[in-house]
């Protein structure tokens, strides 16, 4: 396996926050929009207005439902684009050298003029992050917006991937995982992010920040409830069933409360 760089100076990638992704597909379309008229061949669409429209996208949002026994089911939106793996199998299988991982920043790219469109790299990717463009016959994948992040024709603040810039929920963050103090490294550490599908041994750079635990409705019983003002016991913690509240109790309380104002 000779063509992966031994190591890269930077490990640029994304941190994707599953706790806030609302599944809006904004990143999907902005990615398509940027990339169809920038790096490489356009991202084509077949049968665009027909019975079976199908096109090339570099980023897609899945929606999962997760159910644990005795808890209400939970919905998780799950964006998926290339994770720019350190041990990228898609690179090593490539017969032409078109697929490569950049030594300086770790971005995994396809050099389209070398690509024969054999599809093997897409077979080798466990995440489904590569799509062969049907019109151009070359492999397309997330470029980490390599033509944005260093682009001197863009204002500095815009030198980030299109999907990150557009995400309305701020669920996508871009940074350097080689730097332990970077935004993404810190977020990943704080939120206990783990690499996706480690069984596949790809050492992905991108990290997913897991959904935070949900307030569990089962715990209702343990939580303080309001003490009715007419509860003479003065003990606030009575889960008193149908407390027979009445307007009479209110009057006495109001009188005192208004005095205090």
């Amino acid at each position: 396996m000779t063509t992966l760089p031994q190591s890269t100076h930077k490990k640029l990638g994304l941190a994707i926050d599953l706790d806030i992704c609302v599944g809006c597909h904004a990143c999907v379309i902005n990615c398509k929009e940027w990339n169809t008229s920038n790096y490489g061949a356009p991202l084509s669409d077949q049968d665009a207005y027909g019975a079976e429209p199908v096109g090339t996208f570099l980023n897609r949002i899945h929606t999962f439902e997760v159910k644990a026994a005795d808890k209400p089911a939970q919905t998780v939106h799950f964006p998926k684009s290339c994770l720019h793996c350190d041990d990228a199998p898609c690179v090593t299988v490539c017969p032409t050298g078109a697929s490569y991982k950049r030594a300086d920043d770790g971005i995994v790219l396809v050099n389209e003029s070398d690509c024969i469109g054999c599809g093997l790299c897409a077979w080798a990717c466990p995440y489904g992050a590569r799509e062969l463009d049907a019109a151009e016959g070359v492999m397309k994948k997330c470029t980490l917006c390599v033509d944005r992040i260093y682009n001197e024709n863009l204002p500095e603040i815009d030198r980030e991937p299109a999907c990150v810039r557009t995400c309305p929920a701020n669920a996508r963050h871009f940074g350097d995982y080689a730097d332990p103090d970077s935004n993404v490294s810190r977020m990943a550490a704080e939120r206990g992010a783990v690499p996706l599908f480690p069984e596949q041994g790809t050492s992905p750079v991108n990290r997913y920040l897991p959904p935070r635990p949900k307030a569990d409705i089962q715990t209702d019983g343990d939580i303080d409830i309001l003490a009715p003002f007419l509860d003479t016991s003065g003990n606030g913690n009575t889960a008193s069933g149908t407390s027979s509240t009445s307007a009479k109790g209110l009057l006495g309380w109001l009188d005192k409360a208004l005095e205090a104002i």
Binding site: T36, S37, N38, P42, L43, D47, A48, Y49
Partner: peptide
């Protein structure tokens, strides 16, 4: 609409 498109 046209069959295939390649915006960009």
């Amino acid at each position: 609409g046209p069959k295939n498109i390649r915006y960009g």
